[in-house]
Every structure is written in C-alpha cells, then in structure tokens.
C-alpha cells in the first residue's frame, strides 16, 4: 500500500516536471508546477513531515503559484516564438544533464545506507516541536529571514511601481 503510494506520487512528480520542461505556454508550466508541489506534499506526509506538507500546500502551491499565475495573466504571456539559441547548448546540454544526474545518483548510492527503510509513522515531526525549535535554537535565523522578507516586500513594490 505504502509502496504503491510512493511510486504513484513519485511518478506524478516526475511526469509533471517533464511536462513543465516541455510545455511552451507558461500557464501550462505553472499548472504542472502546482502538480509537482502537490505530489511532493504527499511525499512529505509519508516521511512524517506534516507541518512541511501543510506549508508546502499553503505557501508554495497557494501563495507563490498564485503570484506566478497572476504575473502571467497580467503580462498576457503567450507562447514564445522559437528563437534559434546556441547550438552548443542544444547538443551538449542534455548529455551534460544526464551526466549530472548519474553523478548525483552514484554519490547517493555510495553514501546512503542501503538498509535504511522508510516506514510510514516511524518518525513523527510534530508541529509543536518544530515551533519550539524555531523560537529557541533558530531564533536568530528566524529574525533574519523576517527582515529579509520585509526587504523583499519593499523591493517588489519599488520594482513594480510605474515610473512617473
């Protein structure tokens, strides 16, 4: 049962990601990305990260993707015309990406313990514990990212403002 769910959501995530790369229209890519994020949220739940799964759906698939879809519609972005980009990138790009994937996978297989099995319900990341850690051990990083997001907010307003 659990294995079937893993493969279902893993295949969904990879399929949506391939669709994101291959689509020409940005709104189709945005919908595929929402699919990837929803599948990843299910995988987080299976790994016992329920807080992260909820935040993934609310912040990523909700807020950030609404921002993307809003900008696509605001700019009325359609399909891009195909421009002939660098031939070197076209011929070398895909093999080099496969090399990158193979090297990451080989490193993972070398260092990851082969007997480690993920059992559903074995590890339970409770939200209360995350909150306690966030406001004790990680209080300074938390304050720094709150300043960062304030700066980003002001920067976005300044950038998107109409020049007078």
């Amino acid at each position: 049962m659990y294995e079937a769910f893993f493969f279902l959501f893993a295949l969904a995530a990879v399929g949506f990601a391939v669709n994101l790369v291959l689509q020409n229209h940005p709104i189709h890519s945005a919908l595929s990305l929402i699919g990837v994020m929803a599948s990843l949220a299910s995988l987080y739940l299976m790994l016992g990260a329920e807080f992260i799964a909820a935040v993934q759906v609310i912040v990523y698939a909700g807020a950030i993707m609404v921002l993307f879809v809003f900008v696509i519609m605001l700019l009325n972005a359609g399909e891009e015309e195909r421009t002939n980009f660098s031939r070197l990138a076209g011929t070398l790009g895909v093999p080099l990406i496969l090399v990158l994937l193979a090297s990451i996978a080989s490193i993972v297989y070398r260092i990851a313990p082969s007997d480690e099995m993920v059992r559903f319900g074995d590890f339970h990341g409770r939200t209360a514990d995350i909150g306690r850690m966030l406001f004790r051990t990680y209080l300074l990083p938390f304050e720094i990212v709150s300043i960062l997001i304030l700066v980003a907010l002001v920067g976005a307003v300044v950038l998107a403002r109409k020049e007078s």
């Binding site: 995530a13 994101l20 496969l98 994937l101 990851a112 993920v118």
Partner: peptide, 19 residues
C-alpha cells in the same frame, strides 16, 4: 517499505529536470 535512497534519487531527478 521504500529505501531512503529512492527519495534522494527522486530528488536528484527533479533537480536535473529543473536544470
């Protein structure tokens, strides 16, 4: 039961698709 490395390889595949 799923080996942990499956999750890491899935993460690598998604990263390479992003690249």
């Amino acid at each position: 039961m799923i080996p942990l490395s499956y999750y890491l390889v899935l993460s690598a595949i998604l990263f390479c698709l992003g690249v």
